[in-house]
Computed example of a mutant assay.
Amino acid sequence: MCGRFGLTNPQRLAEAGLLADLAITSVAADLPNPYPARHNVAPSQPVLAVLDRTRDGERERTLAALQWGLVPRWAKDATIGHKLVNARAETLVEKPTFRAPFTKGKRCVVLADVFYEWQDLRDATADPRNGDRGTTGRRPVAKLAKPGKQPWAIRLRDGEPFAFAGLWETWRDPADPGAAWLATCTLITTTPNALVRRVHDRMPVLLPPGAVGEWLDPDTPPERARELLVPYDATAMEAWPISLRINTPAYDEPDVLEPTGALIHGGR
């Protein structure tokens, strides 16, 4: 899964040309300007996204803030979004919650320049001295401390911003017809590339520049859109271990990116 990410240098979006590649034609009126740097974006928080939609009979490509965690149209309340922050690429058309926005062209991209995954160290340290099943079948009187999960920061090697593939939806409280519409999104995950596989068994879909427009276009057939949901080129990425500060959603400081171990590159 992808449970955290960052957009640590939003000004670089324009410098890198990504915003131009997205062919944005409108900006949501409530979007902060300038958009703040974020180092630890967590579910239920706003994310910077681009979506293609029709308003007043005109197509527009909009830069907007969406709430992370998809709330389907049929939901009775918005709390379901806490469970729908990710959607598996392999089962999009099998899950009604995701099939509707996917097949109806409600595809978006979420902008970022780093994401985080947690490496589970426990399975790699099975030891009968810790009470794990072993060859002796004995349990010791004293147990050694078991390690937990090690967070890693993962990004493109050149530090450029990138676009996650996502789905978006709008929802309004059925108990209050006068309530404002809430725009939400989910990030799509796929199998890991060679680099991320060393850390986790899933990774978010990062769309290469040439695929972004095709993914966003509502006229792109679902069959073709699914073909875009593949692991990113591992040789273009790097990763490094970081501290447990990232585990606190309210902590959003640059030092979450400080390395606690060696940098690794894809293809090495």
Rank of each mutant, 00 (worst) to 15 (best):
A42H: 10
L48T: 03
F162T: 00
D123E: 13
T170A: 15
D255H: 08
F102P: 03
P192Y: 05
A211H: 07
L19M: 12
L207F: 01
D173L: 05
T25E: 03
P221H: 08
N86S: 10
P151M: 04
P10G: 04
P72H: 07
A126G: 09
L22V: 07
D21R: 14
L19C: 08
T8C: 12
T235Q: 15
W168P: 00
K76D: 13
R202L: 10
W74N: 02
W240F: 12
V41W: 05
P128I: 02
L156K: 12
D255C: 11
L121F: 10
E117V: 13
G210Y: 10
I80Q: 08
I80P: 01
T220N: 10
G148A: 14
A16R: 07
D77S: 11
T260G: 03
A29W: 03
P218H: 02
R99V: 07
P241G: 02
T97E: 04
R155V: 05
L182F: 05
R198P: 00
H39Y: 15
G81I: 00
D52N: 12
G178Q: 08
A87R: 03
A78C: 04
D56M: 09
L257R: 13
R4Y: 08
P140L: 08
I264T: 14
L63E: 02
A194S: 15
G178M: 07
V50L: 04
A236Y: 07
P174C: 04
E238H: 08
R155E: 15
P34V: 12
E258L: 11
P174N: 05
Q150L: 15
P192T: 09
L92M: 03
N130Y: 00
E94C: 06
W152S: 01
A225D: 00
A28R: 09
